[in-house]
Amino acid sequence: MSIWEYANPVKFLRLSERVLPALWVISFACLAIGLIWGFFFTPDDFRQGSTVKIIYLHVPSALMAINAWFMMLVASLIWLIRRHHVSALAAKAAAPVGIAMTLIALITGAVWGQPMWGTWWVWDPRLTSFLILFLFYIGYVALWSAVDDPDSAADLTSMLCIVGSVFAVLSRYAVNFWNQGLHQGASLSLDKETNVANVFYHPLLFSIAGFVCLFLALVLYRTGTEIRRRRMRALMAREVRHA
């Protein structure tokens, strides 16, 4: 039994049918717990007031925006090396989810920045990097939809994802160099000293778990959709040939 078993679309579909209901329930439960706890039962921060509650949306979505791209990178590599179609389709399925997460991170960040920094937007390194990530996502999705042949679309987008990852990291450093920012350091780290306070920390963990499960559920479901779409295409092509 190895993980490559699930490169078989039928097995993948069977597994995802089994896992998906649980995943949906877990993700909504975690989101509900984290967000309700965070929204109703945490105190205001002494400096940020009630805007600290935005953290339960901003941090998990920003985390998932980056992890979604990373997942696409891994899936692209698997496609290029082992030629498993499910992998390529999973990368395709993850991109719109990543766009949504990036969008949420940008919106909640802007809404938080307005009262705290006195401006919706600053060209701070972190903000700028996220905007660049957003552009990468859009280019990736546009390339998928522009190429007709599914296999070469998978090839080309995989290469774009890999090269894009290198340039995304480069941009991150370039942007850092270009402008020292207002943004605080990472909210989560293993170093207890710099971490956010415990009252905010526990609901945040639930919220992050909820976002992670939601991402997994969405990607599994969308990958299933893509597999069925591919199969339909193949069937219709055969029908045309028989006719």
Binding site: F39, G49, S50, K53, L57, P96, I104, I107, Q114
Partner: peptide
């Protein structure tokens, strides 16, 4: 809860996130 003077910001952040996520899930 009493959101104080930042009620509009907090609520709009939650609202916008809810809209984006709902659109994403519904489209999916």
């Amino acid at each position: 809860p009493d959101l104080g003077k930042y009620a509009a910001e907090v609520l709009s952040a939650y609202g916008a996130t809810c809209v984006v996520l709902c659109v994403l899930v519904a489209a999916t």
